[in-house]
Design a protein around this nucleic acid. Structure first.
Length: 423
DNA sequence: TCTCCGATTAGAC
DNA sequence: CTAACGGTCTAATCGGAGA
Protein backbone atom coordinates (compact mmCIF):
# COMPACT_ATOMS: atom_id res chain seq x y z
CA UNK A 1 0.00 0.00 0.00
CA UNK A 2 1.45 3.37 -1.01
CA UNK A 3 1.46 6.38 1.29
CA UNK A 4 -1.59 8.47 0.55
CA UNK A 5 -1.16 11.87 -1.06
CA UNK A 6 -1.57 14.95 1.06
CA UNK A 7 -4.92 16.68 0.55
CA UNK A 8 -4.03 20.29 1.22
CA UNK A 9 -6.67 22.95 0.70
CA UNK A 10 -5.93 26.60 0.13
CA UNK A 11 -8.88 28.81 1.00
CA UNK A 12 -8.56 32.30 -0.47
CA UNK A 13 -11.07 35.11 -0.03
CA UNK A 14 -12.16 36.79 -3.24
CA UNK A 15 -11.25 40.49 -3.58
CA UNK A 16 -11.01 40.44 0.19
CA UNK A 17 -10.99 44.12 1.21
CA UNK A 18 -13.69 45.00 -1.29
CA UNK A 19 -15.76 42.01 -0.14
CA UNK A 20 -15.47 43.18 3.50
CA UNK A 21 -16.75 46.61 2.54
CA UNK A 22 -19.63 45.11 0.59
CA UNK A 23 -20.82 43.04 3.52
CA UNK A 24 -21.90 46.31 5.13
CA UNK A 25 -22.75 48.11 1.91
CA UNK A 26 -24.86 45.66 -0.11
CA UNK A 27 -25.75 48.58 -2.35
CA UNK A 28 -22.21 48.36 -3.73
CA UNK A 29 -22.70 44.74 -4.82
CA UNK A 30 -22.73 45.64 -8.51
CA UNK A 31 -20.78 48.87 -8.71
CA UNK A 32 -17.06 48.96 -9.47
CA UNK A 33 -15.23 49.41 -6.15
CA UNK A 34 -11.57 49.62 -5.19
CA UNK A 35 -9.82 49.85 -1.83
CA UNK A 36 -6.73 52.03 -1.55
CA UNK A 37 -3.48 51.48 0.34
CA UNK A 38 -2.42 53.67 3.25
CA UNK A 39 -2.38 57.35 2.48
CA UNK A 40 -4.96 56.64 -0.25
CA UNK A 41 -1.97 55.94 -2.49
CA UNK A 42 -2.38 52.79 -4.57
CA UNK A 43 -5.13 50.35 -5.48
CA UNK A 44 -4.78 47.22 -3.34
CA UNK A 45 -8.12 45.51 -3.85
CA UNK A 46 -10.53 45.57 -6.80
CA UNK A 47 -14.03 44.31 -7.39
CA UNK A 48 -14.54 42.24 -10.54
CA UNK A 49 -16.18 45.26 -12.18
CA UNK A 50 -13.14 47.42 -11.44
CA UNK A 51 -10.82 44.73 -12.83
CA UNK A 52 -12.92 44.54 -15.98
CA UNK A 53 -12.59 48.30 -16.42
CA UNK A 54 -8.82 47.92 -16.46
CA UNK A 55 -7.83 49.19 -13.01
CA UNK A 56 -4.50 47.53 -12.23
CA UNK A 57 -3.36 46.02 -8.95
CA UNK A 58 -0.94 48.40 -7.25
CA UNK A 59 -1.78 51.24 -9.58
CA UNK A 60 -1.39 54.72 -8.07
CA UNK A 61 -4.91 56.00 -7.58
CA UNK A 62 -4.34 59.40 -9.15
CA UNK A 63 -3.40 57.62 -12.38
CA UNK A 64 -6.78 55.90 -12.50
CA UNK A 65 -8.67 59.12 -11.83
CA UNK A 66 -9.95 59.67 -15.38
CA UNK A 67 -11.10 56.08 -15.66
CA UNK A 68 -12.78 56.36 -12.28
CA UNK A 69 -14.72 59.44 -13.20
CA UNK A 70 -15.75 58.05 -16.55
CA UNK A 71 -17.17 54.88 -15.03
CA UNK A 72 -18.13 55.90 -11.54
CA UNK A 73 -15.60 53.73 -9.73
CA UNK A 74 -15.91 54.10 -5.97
CA UNK A 75 -12.64 54.26 -4.04
CA UNK A 76 -12.44 53.58 -0.31
CA UNK A 77 -9.54 54.10 2.11
CA UNK A 78 -8.41 50.86 3.73
CA UNK A 79 -10.11 50.01 7.00
CA UNK A 80 -7.74 47.52 8.61
CA UNK A 81 -9.72 47.21 11.83
CA UNK A 82 -12.63 45.91 9.78
CA UNK A 83 -10.55 43.57 7.59
CA UNK A 84 -8.68 42.09 10.55
CA UNK A 85 -11.93 41.41 12.36
CA UNK A 86 -13.56 39.81 9.30
CA UNK A 87 -10.41 37.76 8.73
CA UNK A 88 -10.54 36.41 12.28
CA UNK A 89 -14.12 35.31 11.76
CA UNK A 90 -13.26 33.49 8.54
CA UNK A 91 -10.23 31.74 10.10
CA UNK A 92 -12.32 30.75 13.09
CA UNK A 93 -14.87 29.10 10.83
CA UNK A 94 -12.15 27.27 8.89
CA UNK A 95 -10.64 25.90 12.08
CA UNK A 96 -13.71 23.69 12.50
CA UNK A 97 -12.87 21.80 9.31
CA UNK A 98 -9.47 20.46 10.30
CA UNK A 99 -7.16 20.29 13.29
CA UNK A 100 -4.31 21.45 11.04
CA UNK A 101 -4.51 24.97 9.71
CA UNK A 102 -2.02 27.65 8.64
CA UNK A 103 -3.24 31.21 8.51
CA UNK A 104 -1.01 32.31 5.67
CA UNK A 105 -2.17 35.90 5.27
CA UNK A 106 -5.10 38.13 6.12
CA UNK A 107 -7.19 36.50 3.38
CA UNK A 108 -5.62 33.07 2.85
CA UNK A 109 -5.51 29.89 4.86
CA UNK A 110 -4.14 26.39 4.26
CA UNK A 111 -6.37 23.67 5.70
CA UNK A 112 -5.12 20.08 5.83
CA UNK A 113 -7.84 17.69 4.69
CA UNK A 114 -5.57 14.65 4.44
CA UNK A 115 -7.33 11.44 5.36
CA UNK A 116 -10.80 12.92 5.08
CA UNK A 117 -13.27 11.47 2.62
CA UNK A 118 -14.51 13.64 -0.27
CA UNK A 119 -12.20 16.65 -0.03
CA UNK A 120 -14.04 18.39 -2.82
CA UNK A 121 -17.35 18.12 -0.96
CA UNK A 122 -15.65 19.60 2.09
CA UNK A 123 -14.37 22.44 -0.08
CA UNK A 124 -17.89 23.19 -1.23
CA UNK A 125 -19.10 23.12 2.34
CA UNK A 126 -16.32 25.53 3.39
CA UNK A 127 -17.36 27.92 0.66
CA UNK A 128 -20.97 27.79 1.62
CA UNK A 129 -20.49 28.13 5.34
CA UNK A 130 -18.02 31.02 5.14
CA UNK A 131 -20.35 32.86 2.81
CA UNK A 132 -23.42 32.19 4.93
CA UNK A 133 -21.78 33.15 8.22
CA UNK A 134 -19.66 36.13 7.15
CA UNK A 135 -20.83 37.20 3.69
CA UNK A 136 -17.31 36.75 2.31
CA UNK A 137 -16.98 34.71 -0.91
CA UNK A 138 -14.02 32.29 -0.98
CA UNK A 139 -12.51 29.83 -3.43
CA UNK A 140 -10.86 26.56 -2.48
CA UNK A 141 -7.99 24.79 -4.25
CA UNK A 142 -6.89 21.31 -3.24
CA UNK A 143 -3.55 19.68 -4.08
CA UNK A 144 -0.71 17.52 -2.79
CA UNK A 145 1.59 20.47 -1.98
CA UNK A 146 1.22 24.12 -1.08
CA UNK A 147 2.29 25.21 -4.55
CA UNK A 148 -0.25 22.95 -6.26
CA UNK A 149 -2.99 23.91 -3.79
CA UNK A 150 -2.31 27.52 -4.72
CA UNK A 151 -2.46 26.70 -8.41
CA UNK A 152 -5.67 24.74 -7.89
CA UNK A 153 -7.10 27.78 -6.15
CA UNK A 154 -6.19 29.89 -9.16
CA UNK A 155 -8.10 27.47 -11.37
CA UNK A 156 -11.07 27.50 -8.99
CA UNK A 157 -11.15 31.29 -9.29
CA UNK A 158 -10.53 31.68 -13.00
CA UNK A 159 -12.15 28.74 -14.69
CA UNK A 160 -15.44 29.84 -16.27
CA UNK A 161 -17.41 26.75 -15.24
CA UNK A 162 -15.78 26.46 -11.84
CA UNK A 163 -17.99 25.92 -8.80
CA UNK A 164 -15.36 27.77 -6.76
CA UNK A 165 -13.59 24.57 -5.71
CA UNK A 166 -10.96 22.67 -7.65
CA UNK A 167 -9.28 19.41 -6.65
CA UNK A 168 -6.02 18.80 -8.49
CA UNK A 169 -5.62 15.44 -6.79
CA UNK A 170 -8.66 14.10 -8.62
CA UNK A 171 -6.92 14.43 -12.00
CA UNK A 172 -5.26 11.56 -13.85
CA UNK A 173 -1.59 12.11 -14.79
CA UNK A 174 -2.64 12.79 -18.38
CA UNK A 175 -5.18 15.40 -17.29
CA UNK A 176 -2.57 17.03 -15.05
CA UNK A 177 -0.14 17.39 -17.92
CA UNK A 178 -2.77 18.77 -20.23
CA UNK A 179 -3.99 21.29 -17.66
CA UNK A 180 -0.54 22.51 -16.61
CA UNK A 181 0.42 23.04 -20.24
CA UNK A 182 -2.37 25.60 -20.51
CA UNK A 183 -1.30 27.73 -17.55
CA UNK A 184 1.47 30.33 -17.75
CA UNK A 185 4.48 29.74 -15.51
CA UNK A 186 3.95 33.24 -14.09
CA UNK A 187 0.91 31.93 -12.20
CA UNK A 188 3.10 29.73 -10.04
CA UNK A 189 3.63 30.80 -6.44
CA UNK A 190 7.13 32.24 -6.15
CA UNK A 191 7.46 33.11 -9.82
CA UNK A 192 7.23 36.87 -10.08
CA UNK A 193 7.88 39.32 -12.89
CA UNK A 194 11.67 38.95 -13.05
CA UNK A 195 11.75 35.20 -12.88
CA UNK A 196 9.01 34.95 -15.49
CA UNK A 197 11.21 36.82 -17.96
CA UNK A 198 14.27 34.75 -17.12
CA UNK A 199 12.34 31.50 -17.43
CA UNK A 200 10.97 32.60 -20.80
CA UNK A 201 14.51 33.20 -22.00
CA UNK A 202 15.19 29.53 -21.23
CA UNK A 203 12.14 28.44 -23.18
CA UNK A 204 10.04 27.80 -20.09
CA UNK A 205 6.58 29.27 -20.67
CA UNK A 206 3.95 27.01 -19.15
CA UNK A 207 3.68 25.41 -15.73
CA UNK A 208 4.19 22.10 -17.48
CA UNK A 209 7.47 23.37 -19.00
CA UNK A 210 8.63 24.29 -15.51
CA UNK A 211 7.53 20.98 -14.02
CA UNK A 212 9.40 19.14 -16.76
CA UNK A 213 12.57 21.21 -16.92
CA UNK A 214 15.99 19.60 -16.45
CA UNK A 215 16.45 19.89 -12.71
CA UNK A 216 20.23 20.44 -12.42
CA UNK A 217 20.08 23.16 -15.08
CA UNK A 218 17.14 24.81 -13.36
CA UNK A 219 18.91 24.61 -10.04
CA UNK A 220 22.12 26.18 -11.27
CA UNK A 221 20.32 28.97 -13.10
CA UNK A 222 17.72 29.82 -10.44
CA UNK A 223 18.83 28.40 -7.11
CA UNK A 224 17.31 26.18 -4.46
CA UNK A 225 14.03 27.99 -4.19
CA UNK A 226 13.12 27.26 -7.78
CA UNK A 227 14.11 23.64 -7.40
CA UNK A 228 11.76 23.33 -4.44
CA UNK A 229 9.01 24.93 -6.49
CA UNK A 230 9.59 22.40 -9.25
CA UNK A 231 9.42 19.47 -6.85
CA UNK A 232 6.22 20.85 -5.37
CA UNK A 233 4.78 21.06 -8.89
CA UNK A 234 5.72 17.42 -9.36
CA UNK A 235 3.60 16.58 -6.33
CA UNK A 236 6.27 16.30 -3.63
CA UNK A 237 5.52 18.56 -0.67
CA UNK A 238 8.68 20.49 0.25
CA UNK A 239 7.05 23.19 2.33
CA UNK A 240 5.58 22.30 5.69
CA UNK A 241 2.36 23.56 7.13
CA UNK A 242 3.28 26.13 9.77
CA UNK A 243 0.53 25.91 12.30
CA UNK A 244 1.95 28.40 14.79
CA UNK A 245 3.19 31.75 13.56
CA UNK A 246 6.89 32.06 14.29
CA UNK A 247 8.32 35.07 16.06
CA UNK A 248 9.40 37.92 13.79
CA UNK A 249 13.13 38.44 13.38
CA UNK A 250 12.64 42.02 12.38
CA UNK A 251 9.84 44.48 13.09
CA UNK A 252 9.28 47.60 11.03
CA UNK A 253 6.84 50.42 11.64
CA UNK A 254 6.80 53.14 9.04
CA UNK A 255 4.41 55.37 7.17
CA UNK A 256 4.30 57.90 4.40
CA UNK A 257 3.07 61.27 5.61
CA UNK A 258 -0.16 62.84 4.44
CA UNK A 259 1.88 65.89 3.46
CA UNK A 260 5.57 66.80 3.36
CA UNK A 261 7.12 67.49 6.76
CA UNK A 262 10.05 69.75 7.44
CA UNK A 263 10.20 70.37 11.20
CA UNK A 264 12.18 68.08 13.49
CA UNK A 265 9.60 67.98 16.30
CA UNK A 266 6.97 66.75 13.87
CA UNK A 267 9.33 64.05 12.60
CA UNK A 268 10.09 63.03 16.17
CA UNK A 269 6.42 62.85 16.94
CA UNK A 270 5.88 60.52 14.01
CA UNK A 271 8.89 58.46 15.03
CA UNK A 272 7.64 58.11 18.59
CA UNK A 273 4.37 56.82 17.25
CA UNK A 274 6.25 54.25 15.13
CA UNK A 275 8.27 53.20 18.18
CA UNK A 276 5.06 52.67 20.13
CA UNK A 277 3.66 50.58 17.30
CA UNK A 278 6.79 48.48 16.81
CA UNK A 279 7.25 47.94 20.55
CA UNK A 280 3.73 46.74 21.09
CA UNK A 281 4.26 44.14 18.34
CA UNK A 282 7.54 43.21 19.98
CA UNK A 283 5.88 42.74 23.38
CA UNK A 284 2.97 40.87 21.82
CA UNK A 285 5.38 38.16 20.68
CA UNK A 286 7.18 38.38 24.02
CA UNK A 287 10.50 39.47 22.57
CA UNK A 288 13.11 42.12 23.05
CA UNK A 289 15.32 43.89 20.53
CA UNK A 290 19.00 44.78 20.73
CA UNK A 291 19.19 46.99 17.66
CA UNK A 292 17.10 49.98 16.70
CA UNK A 293 17.25 51.81 13.40
CA UNK A 294 15.47 54.96 12.30
CA UNK A 295 15.14 56.18 8.74
CA UNK A 296 13.89 59.34 7.09
CA UNK A 297 12.99 59.77 3.42
CA UNK A 298 12.18 62.61 1.12
CA UNK A 299 9.69 62.02 -1.71
CA UNK A 300 11.51 59.81 -4.18
CA UNK A 301 8.93 60.48 -6.89
CA UNK A 302 9.72 64.17 -6.90
CA UNK A 303 12.76 64.20 -9.15
CA UNK A 304 12.66 67.99 -9.05
CA UNK A 305 13.31 68.11 -5.31
CA UNK A 306 16.57 67.41 -3.46
CA UNK A 307 16.68 63.87 -2.11
CA UNK A 308 17.90 62.68 1.27
CA UNK A 309 17.28 59.22 2.75
CA UNK A 310 19.38 58.75 5.84
CA UNK A 311 19.26 55.67 8.04
CA UNK A 312 21.02 55.29 11.38
CA UNK A 313 21.22 52.38 13.81
CA UNK A 314 22.32 51.89 17.43
CA UNK A 315 23.16 48.58 19.04
CA UNK A 316 21.56 48.84 22.48
CA UNK A 317 23.62 48.27 25.63
CA UNK A 318 20.82 46.00 26.74
CA UNK A 319 18.03 44.34 24.77
CA UNK A 320 14.65 45.79 25.65
CA UNK A 321 11.01 46.10 24.62
CA UNK A 322 10.33 49.24 26.61
CA UNK A 323 8.77 51.99 24.49
CA UNK A 324 10.15 54.72 26.72
CA UNK A 325 13.72 53.51 26.46
CA UNK A 326 13.49 52.89 22.72
CA UNK A 327 11.77 56.19 22.17
CA UNK A 328 14.68 58.09 23.67
CA UNK A 329 17.10 56.34 21.32
CA UNK A 330 14.85 56.90 18.33
CA UNK A 331 14.44 60.61 19.04
CA UNK A 332 18.21 60.97 19.34
CA UNK A 333 18.78 59.12 16.07
CA UNK A 334 16.24 61.28 14.27
CA UNK A 335 17.94 64.39 15.57
CA UNK A 336 21.39 63.15 14.52
CA UNK A 337 20.23 62.58 10.93
CA UNK A 338 17.94 65.54 10.60
CA UNK A 339 18.83 68.24 8.10
CA UNK A 340 16.49 71.20 7.96
CA UNK A 341 16.52 71.87 4.22
CA UNK A 342 14.52 68.89 3.10
CA UNK A 343 10.87 68.00 2.76
CA UNK A 344 10.41 64.59 4.33
CA UNK A 345 7.68 62.27 3.05
CA UNK A 346 8.24 59.16 5.08
CA UNK A 347 9.95 57.87 8.20
CA UNK A 348 10.20 54.60 10.02
CA UNK A 349 11.58 52.57 12.88
CA UNK A 350 13.14 49.14 12.57
CA UNK A 351 13.78 46.76 15.46
CA UNK A 352 16.11 43.82 14.97
CA UNK A 353 18.48 41.49 16.77
CA UNK A 354 15.33 40.10 18.35
CA UNK A 355 15.43 37.48 21.11
CA UNK A 356 12.88 36.08 23.55
CA UNK A 357 12.24 38.52 26.39
CA UNK A 358 14.17 37.72 29.51
CA UNK A 359 17.14 36.18 27.73
CA UNK A 360 19.89 38.45 28.92
CA UNK A 361 23.33 38.95 27.57
CA UNK A 362 24.34 40.28 30.94
CA UNK A 363 26.78 43.09 31.02
CA UNK A 364 28.77 43.41 34.20
CA UNK A 365 28.71 47.15 33.99
CA UNK A 366 25.02 47.67 33.29
CA UNK A 367 22.37 47.07 35.92
CA UNK A 368 19.86 44.52 34.61
CA UNK A 369 16.42 45.85 33.90
CA UNK A 370 13.20 43.90 34.42
CA UNK A 371 12.09 42.21 31.17
CA UNK A 372 8.70 43.83 31.01
CA UNK A 373 7.94 46.87 33.06
CA UNK A 374 4.49 46.91 34.70
CA UNK A 375 3.97 50.27 33.02
CA UNK A 376 4.38 48.79 29.53
CA UNK A 377 2.11 45.91 30.42
CA UNK A 378 -0.60 48.28 31.63
CA UNK A 379 -0.20 50.39 28.49
CA UNK A 380 -0.70 47.35 26.25
CA UNK A 381 -3.77 46.26 28.19
CA UNK A 382 -5.39 49.67 27.96
CA UNK A 383 -4.66 50.06 24.28
CA UNK A 384 -5.95 46.59 23.59
CA UNK A 385 -9.17 47.16 25.48
CA UNK A 386 -9.95 50.69 24.42
CA UNK A 387 -8.29 50.85 21.02
CA UNK A 388 -4.84 51.64 19.71
CA UNK A 389 -3.68 55.10 20.68
CA UNK A 390 -5.76 55.38 23.86
CA UNK A 391 -2.63 55.70 25.99
CA UNK A 392 0.44 57.22 24.39
CA UNK A 393 4.03 57.86 25.19
CA UNK A 394 4.55 61.56 25.70
CA UNK A 395 5.37 63.28 22.44
CA UNK A 396 3.42 60.83 20.36
CA UNK A 397 0.47 62.44 18.64
CA UNK A 398 1.27 65.96 19.74
CA UNK A 399 1.52 67.08 16.15
CA UNK A 400 -0.85 65.81 13.54
CA UNK A 401 0.87 67.37 10.54
CA UNK A 402 2.26 64.01 9.47
CA UNK A 403 -0.88 61.85 9.79
CA UNK A 404 -1.74 59.86 6.71
CA UNK A 405 -4.44 60.78 4.31
CA UNK A 406 -7.58 58.69 4.74
CA UNK A 407 -10.33 60.59 3.10
CA UNK A 408 -12.61 57.75 2.12
CA UNK A 409 -12.67 55.36 5.06
CA UNK A 410 -15.79 53.37 5.91
CA UNK A 411 -16.95 53.13 9.55
CA UNK A 412 -15.54 50.42 11.88
CA UNK A 413 -18.75 48.44 11.60
CA UNK A 414 -17.67 45.46 13.65
CA UNK A 415 -15.27 46.85 16.23
CA UNK A 416 -16.83 50.09 17.39
CA UNK A 417 -20.29 50.34 18.92
CA UNK A 418 -20.58 53.91 17.69
CA UNK A 419 -20.37 52.62 14.15
CA UNK A 420 -22.94 49.87 14.29
CA UNK A 421 -25.09 50.19 11.22
CA UNK A 422 -28.73 50.88 12.04
CA UNK A 423 -30.90 48.26 10.41
C1' DT B 1 41.33 31.20 0.49
C1' DC B 2 37.73 31.17 3.63
C1' DT B 3 34.30 33.18 6.42
C1' DC B 4 31.43 36.55 7.88
C1' DC B 5 28.33 40.30 7.22
C1' DG B 6 25.80 43.89 5.24
C1' DA B 7 23.48 45.08 1.06
C1' DT B 8 20.82 43.74 -2.66
C1' DT B 9 17.36 41.08 -4.98
C1' DA B 10 12.99 38.80 -5.54
C1' DG B 11 8.78 37.53 -4.03
C1' DA B 12 4.24 37.46 -1.48
C1' DC B 13 0.11 39.82 -0.17
C1' DC C 1 -4.72 75.51 -9.15
C1' DT C 2 -1.40 71.57 -8.63
C1' DA C 3 0.13 67.49 -7.17
C1' DA C 4 -1.12 63.22 -6.16
C1' DC C 5 2.90 56.47 -6.06
C1' DG C 6 1.91 51.10 0.45
C1' DG C 7 3.79 48.54 4.29
C1' DT C 8 5.94 44.27 6.22
C1' DC C 9 8.38 40.39 6.03
C1' DT C 10 11.60 36.43 4.57
C1' DA C 11 15.25 33.87 2.33
C1' DA C 12 18.84 33.56 -0.94
C1' DT C 13 22.57 35.46 -3.03
C1' DC C 14 26.24 38.73 -3.98
C1' DG C 15 30.40 41.11 -3.14
C1' DG C 16 33.75 43.13 -0.26
C1' DA C 17 36.41 43.18 4.23
C1' DG C 18 39.03 40.96 7.31
C1' DA C 19 41.25 36.71 9.20
Amino acid sequence: MSASVQQLALVDCNNFYVSCERVFRPDLRHTPVVVLSNNDGCVVSRSNEAKALGVKMGQPWFQAQDLAEAHGILALSSNYALYADMSNRVMQILSAFSPRQEVYSIDECFVDLTGMPEPKAIGLQIRERVNAWTGIPVCVGIGPSKTLAKLANHIAKKHPRSPGVFNYNALTPAQQTKLLAQIAASEVWGVGRRLTAQLQAQGIHSVQDLRNAHTPTLRSAFGVVMEKTQRELQGTACMDLEEAPSAKKQIIASRSFGQPVQALPVLQDAVSSFVANACSKLRAQNSQAALIQVFLQTNRFRKDQPQYSPCLAVPLPQATNDSLVLNRWAAALAERMYRPDYLYKKAGVMLSDITPAGQHQTDWLEPTAPTQTPLMHALDQLNQRYGRGTVKVSGQGAYSAWQMKQERKSPNYTTDWQNLPCV
